[in-house]
């Protein structure tokens, strides 16, 4: 198991080569790279940031779960942070398994779950501005569901007035808020 968050180039070929063992019949690789546009808007570069310690713990847990759930032999999961330009690898998923079916399934599950639960964010720098990429909604049970009516209390014990909860706003979420 190789789980890393790195600040430099991900050595993809090396990681794939070292993932192979005699018992394997398949190695499935997902190489996530920086595309040159988002919805037709030309991308200059992406800046990735993470809640680093938590992201690493979450990635380790995902790999452990993938090995158990799909019965694959080994997994490498590496994510890069910082500024990446078009064509560079931001995330690499490598799954080694006796059979291809489990390798494909585990690889797909790993990248899809990482994109919904591992605390990493990217800001897209375009020719004409920058936005934080739309994240995918958190899975059921992960978001804190603050949409429930909440009346908070200040440190001195004074409750917020009616309407002071976090969930009263009725403005639709903007697709690109910044």
């Amino acid at each position: 198991m190789r789980v890393e968050i790195v600040d430099g180039v991900i050595p993809a070929a090396e990681i794939v080569a070292e993932a192979k063992a005699g018992a394997d019949g398949a190695v499935c690789v997902f190489d996530g790279i920086v595309r040159d546009n988002t919805r037709g808007r030309k991308t200059l570069h992406l800046d990735y940031e993470a809640y680093r310690e938590m992201a690493l713990e979450q990635m380790r847990a995902l790999v452990t779960e993938a090995i158990e759930r799909f019965g694959v032999r080994d997994v490498a999961l590496v994510h890069r942070l910082g500024r990446l330009v078009v064509g560079e690898t931001s995330v690499l998923v490598v799954v080694a398994s006796a059979h291809r079916g489990a390798a494909f399934e585990a690889c797909r599950w790993l990248i899809d779950t990482l994109k919904r639960t591992v605390p990493i964010w990217k800001k897209e720098q375009f020719v004409d501005g920058a936005v934080w990429a739309d994240g995918e909604p958190f899975p059921e049970g992960v978001g804190v569901a603050l949409a429930t009516e909440t009346v908070g209390q200040l440190a001195d014990g004074k409750p917020f007035p009616e309407g002071g909860g976090v969930a009263r706003a009725a403005v639709p979420v903007e697709k690109e808020p910044l």
Binding site: D31, I111, P119, D134
Partner: peptide, 11 residues
């Protein structure tokens, strides 16, 4: 930690 919806991985 306050975490906005995450957007790691490829695009």
């Amino acid at each position: 930690a306050l975490l906005p919806p995450v957007s790691g991985g490829g695009q």
